[in-house]
Amino acid sequence: MIYLKALVLFLLTASVGMADELLDQIQARLTRSAITRGAFEQTKQLKVLRKPLVSNGTFIYDKSRGIAWKTLSPVPSLLLISDTRLWTAQGEQPVPAAFGKVFQAMLGADLAQLAAAFEITGAVRKTSWQVSLVPRDEMLKKVISRMQLSGDHELRLLEIFETNGNSSTLRFQNISHPDRLAVGEEADFAHLSP
């Protein structure tokens, strides 16, 4: 009996400790595609506010262009993120440390490049999986203490815990993988072309 327990424990720690293997397993389940489209619901919990900031909208991820994040309510707005650029109607900003990459990796289900930026622990169950990411980058570490991802063959839930106590929860729904961008989406991404 004690042996069995030890074996289970061993297997468990093995699957937890070996990030690469863990990611490989999750990766194997995820639907890989050049384009991912879906809806999101975001709940931001800011410490100083009594109620959470809830917003929803749609997103589209294109491997070669980046992410278009379209908030529909309560304030319609568009945010575009690529490897190196972050565009909003208010102007262009430098991408906050490693953020563009992380976002892309998560939405594009390219988990391999996460391993470089985060310490990864987690577990894979029969139909679902869950990982926890702790930033390695000193700058990111100052802002974000931990991120939690979970899903099945798609990413379903993303939680971001900030060091100052704020947190955000992002739920993804209606995920699909179209072959090409719609005309309107093409036009949105045009803001990113120099």
Partner: peptide, 13 residues
């Protein structure tokens, strides 16, 4: 718009 943005952490800090 900034506060609801998924990357607005620094601004909202």
């Amino acid at each position: 718009e900034i506060l609801y943005s998924p990357v607005g952490q620094l601004e909202a800090a």
